[in-house]
Every structure is written in C-alpha cells, then in structure tokens.
C-alpha cells in the first residue's frame, strides 16, 4: 500500500558492512519489479515520519562521510541503471527514492538535519567501530548530551538506580555508560548526576558526543612479543578528543 513500507521491504541490506561498497542490486531487482507493478498510491507517506525510513547513504551506496562529488557519481551511476528511460516504468519508484536521497544529501542544511535525524556524525570513526558504545536519543535532539567518563567511573551503579532508562551498567567493562540520551525525566537525570560519588557524568556538547563515545571505547594495544598487548583507552578523554578533532581537521585540509 505505501511507498515506504514497500521500499523498506525492497531495501533490506541494512548491514553496516555493506555501506561502504556499491550495492549489488541484481538480486533485489525481482522484488522491485513485483512491487512496482502493483503499487501506485503514495498517500500514507505523510502519516509516517518521512525520515529514517531508509538510509539515504545506503540507498546511494556511499559512506556517511562522502563528499558531494562521491554522492553525485553514485547517484548518476544508479540513475543509469534504474531510470525509467532505461528500464521502463518499473524503475519509477526506485528513481523517486534516489531523487529524494540526492536532494537531501546535496544540500548542506538538509543533509545536516538528516544526519542529525539518523544520529550519525559525519566523521571517520575507523573500521572497528562498533555501534554498541553509542547512545541513542529519545525525543528531539538537544544541544547538550550526557557522557560518562569511564576512566573515572568506579562502577557504583548509583546512576543506573536513579535513571535506569538513561544509564546502563556495562558489565564487561565494569563501568556505567549512557544508553539513551534523556531516557528519563530531567529530574531523575539530575539526581543521578548528583549521586555520582566521583562526578564522572558530564554534560557535553552534542557535536562532541560522537568523538567522545568513540574514543572511550577500549582499543586493542599493539603487543611486542610477550609485552604489551591488551586494551587501552586515552587517560584523559577530553584532551584526547581535542587532539583527535585537530587531527581530523588537518586531514581535511
């Protein structure tokens, strides 16, 4: 019935591993054809949230930090395979999605909004980035976000008691971290911050959050024979974040 439900069904490749490569679309083309002969109505679209239905980056087969040139090339390549002028009427729906994705990603303001809505920072986070450590957002995005400095955390679980929808105890690491931003009422969050005996819960800027959450995850340490090895993370997470950003900027120029 709806464009969106059908396209979610059409585009089932949401595995992170596939994001970076171009998509192999041939195995989905049969589904696509079936869908497009039967479906016409679009009317239910607006009474679902328009965003977050598909990942535009995945649709175009580009990474989230790709630049305009890469997006444009991917868009044209896919258009050439799916445009109705080439494959006939069955390409209509897919091309509509492509156009929508392209329109959003090519305009800086729309792309920024979209990135926020899918909670994906456009920074290169390395290959062994697991989404496990990242917090999600409940409700609208706010300028401030919660962050637990796991170096300082003593694993007292005080914050988890007071705001169990926001904080979670990471048993493997033995410390607490943020699961859902603003998962509880502001008051409960305030109480849990107050209750922390080592004051390791911080309010940080939203833009900083992705970097901090990435850096706080223990990274494998290079080993030298029997020495070294194991896991490590920066001793001071905030200065590490600063230098990481500086490094990114240098790469960009």
């Amino acid at each position: 019935m709806s464009l969106l439900t059908s396209s979610c069904y059409l585009l089932p490749w949401s595995k992170p591993a596939q994001i970076h490569g171009y998509l192999n679309f041939s195995k989905h083309s049969k589904l696509l054809r079936q869908e497009c002969t039967t479906v016409r109505c679009c009317s239910s679209r607006s009474w679902q949230t328009p965003r977050a239905q598909h990942n535009y980056y995945e649709l175009l087969g580009v990474s989230a930090d790709s630049n305009a040139q890469e997006i444009r090339e991917a868009y044209r390549k896919l258009q050439k395979q799916h445009h109705p002028d080439i494959v006939g009427q069955k390409g209509h729906k897919y091309t509509l999605l492509l156009n929508e994705a392209y329109e959003v990603l090519m305009k800086d303001d729309l792309r920024r909004k979209y990135d926020e809505s899918i909670n994906q920072m456009r920074i290169r986070l390395g290959e062994n980035n697991t989404p496990l450590g990242n917090s999600t957002w409940k409700g609208p995005l706010r300028p401030q976000a919660l962050f637990v400095d796991e170096n300082a955390c003593i694993g007292c679980r005080e914050c988890v008691y007071h705001a169990s929808n926001t904080f979670i105890m990471d048993e493997a690491r033995g410390c607490a971290r943020v699961k859902v931003q603003y998962g509880d009422t502001d008051q409960n969050i305030e109480v849990s911050i107050e209750s922390c005996p080592v004051n390791c819960i911080y309010w940080v800027k939203r833009e900083e959050l992705a970097v901090l959450e990435f850096l706080i995850q223990p990274q494998p340490k290079a080993g030298y024979g029997v020495f070294g090895g194991g896991w490590e993370r920066p001793a001071n997470i905030f200065t590490a974040a600063e230098s990481f950003k500086k490094q990114l900027r240098r790469q960009a120029t």
Partner: peptide, 8 residues
C-alpha cells in the same frame, strides 16, 4: 525539480 518527482 528532478523528474521523476513525487512531492506532497
């Protein structure tokens, strides 16, 4: 607007 187009 790029065609094909669908807006609402």
């Amino acid at each position: 607007t790029t065609m094909p187009a669908r807006k609402e």
